[in-house]
Design a protein around this nucleic acid. Structure first.
Lengths: 236, 236
DNA sequence: CGCTGGATTGAGGCCGATCAACTTCAGTGG
DNA sequence: CCACTGAAGTTGATCGGCCTCAATCCAGCG
């Protein structure tokens, strides 16, 4: 991990905020402890947050920014396991094995909170609401990226764009947004080549379903995009 | 759900057994409560355990047998989301939405325990060890089926067979086993056609990497199979 | 201004889907 | 026990979509 510098800005929150310092609830009931946040810091673009195969110790809450987790394959290829955006929590996959079987890299400047997992477990004991909430969050995680199994490229990309449009802005659906990752990253995630991603974007644009200008995406016909995402239509 | 009949046989356990009736630990410390098991019953082959889109209320622990979860798609196709075998627990995916977005069907006669989720949460409060254990189990679940994103058919199937060989017998790796599901089910899970599954099996057999006789599988060269699973080699 | 890496576009080949024929298997009833 | 039947599995021929490789375009930046 590159030497991160501490973050003294105002926290804009994450999925664990209800249990964290300064939440409404905790201010009203100072007898409750807050989540044991180890420290907050900033990871710069293209810097590494987690080294591959390193020992699992922390969950990372992303306050602001975007992260990719990358698994290098035996054949030399790189597989992107997931993208994580503002508000989301990263690291659950590593609990079972005690190791992060991936590298985590910031796609944009990213503000992160570290939560020591053992402290977290200890805090969990005294907080049944968090017990329920954490099961909810991991359950959500189990359903993320289920569209990866689609076979058609246009379907995968339609799902991907719809997914991004709601996750990039803290679950608020936005029809316009900036792609934080490259075509290659998208391809590595969806198991397509960058060329196929590019071609499919072009076709979607030619049909006026999306607009695309480098990394700037606009969803023009969301209903059509949803139909493609469900496999009911194709482009061209 | 078809009218299930109660199971009065001896329990052979599941991933939650350490917290359940009759475990070593609980017999030694009778002051601890046991997990609130609602009831045990048997689901016959091809019968339904969970109706599609039904309200989430229970986690299901599979004591013995095999289950598939099926999601019907808008285009009429059927996607198999997962297979569950002896010892495994089914239902985490439904926590976040409060609904099972799938059908669960028994592939073979299956013995199941129902756990009411609200009772489970209540029990969880008083049991930090279970808190830790359940996070471990769901973390494991997050990593199941990660090989689905492979692009090549032989690679998917190699991963699938290795996965099955260890999961079918309570995490004990067995080089010989019986496939509980059809070629079509395998295809729907791996996003291949039944024809491709059949052809790939045949090629693996011709190279003496596996033996296959209808549903009976033997893994002859596990090291080679692992290489294929990692994308280092192909068949033929 | 040229450099560099990402993005786009084009031509050709391969793998898995599709469609169809055939074989094998499991279950049923005579 | 065998004959029948429908489902599951295998095998073959063809087609199409994505990959591959290569050239070009473009944006950001010194």
């Amino acid at each position: 991990m590159h030497t991160p510098h501490m973050d003294d800005s105002v926290c804009c929150g994450c999925h664990l905020t209800p249990f964290c310092i300064g939440s409404e609830k905790l201010r009203a009931n100072p007898e409750f402890d807050s989540l044991p946040v180890k420290r907050r810091f900033v990871v710069k673009k293209n810097e590494r947050l987690i080294a591959p195969n390193s020992h699992f110790q922390y969950l990372f809450a992303i306050e602001k920014g975007s992260i990719k987790t990358v698994q290098s394959e035996a054949d030399g290829g790189e597989l992107i396991r997931g993208f994580y955006f503002s508000g989301e929590v990263l690291g659950y996959e590593a609990i079972y094995s005690g190791r992060y079987h991936f590298t985590a890299i910031a796609l944009t400047e990213t503000h992160v909170c570290m939560l020591d997992y053992h402290d977290f477990l200890y805090y969990l004991q005294s907080n049944p609401e968090l017990q329920q909430h954490i099961l909810y969050l991991i359950s959500l995680q189990l359903n993320v990226g289920s569209y990866l199994v689609s076979t058609k490229a246009d379907r995968k990309l339609a799902c991907f764009l719809l997914d991004l449009s709601s996750r990039l802005h803290r679950a608020q659906m936005h029809p316009e947004f900036q792609l934080p990752m490259s075509r290659q990253d998208i391809g590595n995630y969806l198991r397509l080549t960058a060329e196929t991603v590019s071609r499919t974007f072009t076709r979607l644009q030619q049909n006026n379903i999306i607009s695309i200008n480098n990394k700037k995406i606009g969803l023009l016909k969301i209903d059509v995009l949803r139909q493609i995402a469900e496999g009911l239509t194709s482009v061209e």
